[in-house]
Amino acid sequence: MITHRFLFVFVAVCFLAGSLFTSCNLEKEVDIELPDYDNQLVVECYLEPGLPYRLSLSKSAAYFAPFPDPDDMGGFLQELLVQGAEVRIRHKDQVILLENRLSIDLENQRLYNYTGNDLVPLDTLEPFFLEIVTPEGKKITGQTRLLPQVPIDSVVVEFKESDTLARTLTYFGDPGEGSNFFRFVLRHSNRDSIPLQDFTLDDRFVDKSFVLGAAYEFTEGDTLVHTLYHVEESYYRFLESLQRAVFGNGNPFAQPSPLTSNLGGDAGAVGVFTGLQYDRLVTIIKRR
């Protein structure tokens, strides 16, 4: 005769055996259907005194769209870059036409598809105006000016006691006169190195001078490049939003962020048009 106890044990064993047959892999690839997205034009134009006017005009893609094949360089660039636009930069009475031709900055691994023949003047007083007419007849506009350079006062190298590792302390003064915004980049001197530090800061909580420290991670003989950009607030906001967009995409402790572009016009473009003034110091780590 089947007892209640036997019946319960039998069912329990069946339950347990059945659950063992299920997979324990709790991770799987899924298809995600996102809302429709119209590709946007992406503008990057940095006006650097002494260098030619140059601009990259590219387009964004749907988030899950396949990437262009890098083995097919022609196809890659065609898919990424937007050709056939009219690009002008106006400064004082001068109108600089940026021709639709590819220029590659091999040293810095950057490419531009609109380049002018003139050099950017060192003029911190008069603004620069950008006007792009897209192949579809839409407009992208922007305005910027060169800010005065803020010099790096000094870079101090400190070694840990009884250790071979050193750190750097970068000092610079706040120029005062309203709000000021900065970008600081610290990297090794070799060209393809990824920055050790790259961040934006403002002078809201600083009285007179800044000191920016790095970790004890350098050894004797390292060559470091310290670059301090004095940037416009709109560029600072754009960089902040870009960092937060990248950081917030998948980080459980950060909220996503749309990009805060400083461009206008009816083309719905994103990107940045900004003057670039910086001071740069090269430091070789050595024990004094």
Binding site: Q40, E44, A62, T227, L242, A245
Partner: peptide, 22 residues
């Protein structure tokens, strides 16, 4: 993010191949 873009950034910084567009 609904889109993504490639951002070269200024010389001496890291080129970003996937900037999400929210």
């Amino acid at each position: 993010p609904v889109g993504r873009l490639t951002f070269q950034d200024v010389a001496g910084t890291e080129l970003k191949t996937v900037v999400p567009v929210f």
